[in-house]
């Protein structure tokens, strides 16, 4: 699948659609006071792909993640976000990850579950779905640290082997700032 082909455009259209739906949902709930967070983290993990009759396991490239998260004070347990992700080990790639999160609410130690649709856009393409969860420890009103585990399942893209999909089990940790 090359850039510019219908399949690639479908990939991009799907991600765009998810993003628009997320933003439309956020506009419904903007009557309440919005809360914006930014999270920056570093992660890696294991990648699983099809081999010659067995699974192949490789280390996932180290990646940087920058998330922009939105919530509102009436439904603090729901968060919507867009992540910018960049692989920085062995290759350089950039992508976006629209996300929705369900959290335990505004607590000092907050847990959350997330679901998203990662789309790597350059220099190759990858599209899939992801699910995961993590913990955020807020040590004051503004700052916190977090760690999360995410499973990605990529099923479309020019970076995939012809013979199958790619599964990544990654974990990342970083800081989170409230504005």
């Amino acid at each position: 699948m090359e850039h510019g082909t219908p399949e690639y455009r479908n990939c991009f259209t799907a991600a765009l659609l998810i993003f628009v739906v997320c933003m439309a949902y956020s506009s419904v709930v903007t009557a309440q006071r919005p809360v914006y967070d930014t999270a920056a983290s570093l992660g890696t993990g294991l990648s699983f792909g099809p081999g010659d009759g067995h699974a192949v396991v490789m280390p996932s490239p180290i990646y940087l993640d920058l998330d922009f998260l939105y919530a509102n004070d009436e439904r603090p347990q729901y968060e919507l976000g867009v992540g910018l992700q960049a692989e920085v080990q062995g290759r350089v790639s950039v992508g976006i990850v629209p996300q929705i999160r369900y959290t335990s609410g505004p607590e000092v130690l907050m847990w959350y579950a997330l679901a998203g649709a990662p789309l790597v856009v350059a220099p190759f393409s990858l599209f899939g779905v992801e699910a995961g969860g993590g913990f955020l420890w807020r040590f004051d009103e503004k700052f916190g640290v977090f760690a999360e585990v995410v499973v990605d399942y990529f099923f479309l893209g020019t970076d995939l082997q012809k013979s199958g999909a790619l599964i990544q089990l990654d974990s990342n940790a970083g800081i989170r700032v409230r504005f």
């Binding site: 990648s47 792909g49 067995h54 699974a55 790639s93 190759f124 970076d159 082997q161």
Partner: peptide, 16 residues
């Protein structure tokens, strides 16, 4: 985990 970082191949993605 970290003891052995490869299992049965060279790559899982073209970019590997």
């Amino acid at each position: 985990g970290s003891l052995i970082w490869a299992c049965g191949g060279d790559c899982v993605r073209n970019s590997d």
